[in-house]
Design a protein around this nucleic acid. Sequence first.
DNA 1: CTACCTGCAAATTATTTGCCTTAAC
DNA 2: GTTAAGGCAAATAATTTGCAGGTAG
Lengths: 142, 142
Amino acid sequence: MGRREQQVLEDYIVQHNLKITKQRRSVLEAFLGSEDHVSAEELYKLVTEKEPKIGLATVYRTLNLLTQSGLASELDFGDGQKRYEHKFMHSHHDHLICTECGKIVEFTHPMIEKLQEEVAIRQGFKLTSHKLDLFGLCAECS
Amino acid sequence: MGRREQQVLEDYIVQHNLKITKQRRSVLEAFLGSEDHVSAEELYKLVTEKEPKIGLATVYRTLNLLTQSGLASELDFGDGQKRYEHKFMHSHHDHLICTECGKIVEFTHPMIEKLQEEVAIRQGFKLTSHKLDLFGLCAECS
DNA sequence: CTACCTGCAAATTATTTGCCTTAAC
DNA sequence: GTTAAGGCAAATAATTTGCAGGTAG
């Protein structure tokens, strides 16, 4: 499990004069082991299996740390809570979401990306990121 | 100001055995008169200028009504609150958002839409909606 | 008159913060 | 030994809900 990610996190922690703790290790481990798109609450449930005394606030704090260190990115599927996915060794992609069963398919489409860039340039913008979510019904739910 | 939208709302209200009230009229009027992308709180401030005794909860309730009746759609730019835009007589579009000054440019790109449709079909999905937000720096903020 | 609607306050939900104790370095 | 981190409970912030009185149909 994620040697490399462990290293990224520890580098970030050292560079920022922070401390490496077993809680942070546990959260990272559970996060890497999870499916993508976990919420803080879900991750908390996963972590407590290994680390029963951990507090929910620590999970939130660690998720922010992971986001700042570049290991996680925040997602928002409009269900009222933030979700997180790991970014390291996991390239950019967009989401296709079934509104019935919640299934999520990840995809990338270079041409779409290229056209987005064009739109931005045409408006004088310098693009830093984007978010594309497609909503619909998957094969089973149609 | 928005005769047609008034009609859409009133039709919806009648069809659902609901009641037309001056608060609902005031919220709709303020909503149509507002710039796009208002939050509930912002709309509340606008409405109270004309209707000082209205409650915030009524604004929330009416925004939900407007969303259900098809006059408004919910947006989420990740700032922790829902925003709303009017949909009627205002065709679909995506957003290009300056992360520095908050400027929002609306755009549509038929080719992007077409490619999205292709992605969905390839995955066996039937597309119902999508959300594309581009984030970057506008000309002034670069 | 019979729902539905409103305003208000209290409740909820997701997340953050304060504080005091504990553990890294 | 400092100083940051953790746990817990209390604080926030956005939104929703319960209720008693008001009003549209």
